[in-house]
């Protein structure tokens, strides 16, 4: 099984527009999938007998910076019975305003691991996960301002009367 096999399986199920690209310079190799049917693709990959990706190893949100103006989320899937890794990636526009953060459907119904990892991505990178059961900040205080892993992040001046940059 290779990532191109999985690509053709997904395309056979969800149409040619569901997989946007393959990722070759990554270990494990992966696929860029469309944001529209992310949840369905994940469920398909988990429950299909030929793939059976039963665990989500890691969920990484990356800000590509102001110039590229995109944010991506990388899902490292792992199939325990087949001992096979796959990287899934979705890319969205990098919205700056707090009321208008990029929106990605949650996969926490598929893998419960994602529940806390998505909260972390929301907290540190600033992505809203649509349909998440409990999207609150997880590592930073609730009243913190901004999302520190954004490339153009600058700290707030005062937090509860304490100077942040001293």
């Amino acid at each position: 099984m290779t990532h191109t096999d999985i690509k053709s399986r997904i395309e056979a199920e969800f149409g040619a527009s569901s997989v946007l690209d393959t990722i070759e310079n990554a270990t494990p190799k992966g696929l860029v999938v469309s944001i529209d049917n992310l949840q369905d693709v994940c469920l398909f990959l988990r429950d299909n007998e030929q793939t059976y990706f039963d665990s989500l190893s890691c969920l990484t949100a990356i800000d590509n910076g102001v110039e590229a103006n995109t944010i991506e989320v990388n899902y490292n899937l792992y199939s325990i019975p087949y001992n096979f890794h796959l990287l899934l990636r979705v890319i969205v526009a990098r919205n700056q305003e707090e009321a208008d953060l990029p929106v990605i459907p949650t996969v926490s119904d598929v893998w419960k691991t994602a529940e806390w990892h998505e909260r972390e991505a929301f907290d540190l990178v600033g992505i809203t996960f649509e349909g998440h059961p409990d999207l609150r900040r997880i590592l930073l205080p609730t009243d913190w301002q901004g999302h520190p892993l954004r490339k153009d992040y600058s700290t707030q001046e005062y937090y509860h009367g304490m100077k942040v940059d001293y």
């Binding site: 990722i23 310079n25 990554a26 270990t27 190893s57 890691c58 990388n74 490292n76 890794h85 990287l87």
Partner: peptide, 22 residues
């Protein structure tokens, strides 16, 4: 390292410790 994404994992006393590098 060359431009790449890399996920590495290893067995720690408490479980799978992974690093996602770019």
């Amino acid at each position: 390292p060359q431009a790449q994404d890399f996920y590495v994992r290893a067995e720690n006393p408490k479980g799978e410790l992974g690093f996602y590098f770019r």
